[in-house]
């Protein structure tokens, strides 16, 4: 094989920006977002999670959030809401 073959890069030639996951809280202090991604029975799962949390942590502030559809990335307003209002989130995939 010839060693001089030059090819063109088929990729986007972009280096992903490295982001570290947010620091995990030591304890749940809220506000806690419970995000339903809109799959069937996501509400069943999150209702149970909320019930358990309220039993254990009655003072925890819980915010219920929902994606319009599981088929698309979260819309920017939902992402903004999570970033500005939630200290932690639990997202339900369900089915």
């Amino acid at each position: 094989m010839s060693g001089s073959l030059v090819i063109l890069d088929p990729t986007a030639e972009q280096e992903p920006i490295g982001r570290r996951p947010a620091t995990r809280p030591d304890q749940l202090t809220g506000p806690l977002g419970l995000i339903d991604i809109a799959k069937p029975r996501g509400d069943v799962f999150l209702n149970e999670v909320e019930r358990l949390l309220r039993a254990d942590l009655p003072d925890l502030e819980i915010i219920r959030l929902r994606k319009p559809t599981y088929t698309k990335p979260s819309p920017s307003d939902l992402r903004a809401k999570v970033a500005s209002r939630c200290r932690a989130v639990i997202q339900a995939l369900a089915d």
Partner: peptide, 24 residues
């Protein structure tokens, strides 16, 4: 007119294997 990055296949590499190894 071509602005894509040029990638030189290393000497003695089979271009087909090279591309596969790059995950392309």
């Amino acid at each position: 007119v071509l602005s894509a990055r040029r990638v030189r296949v290393p000497v003695d590499d089979d271009p087909f294997e090279f591309l596969a190894a790059q995950g392309l």
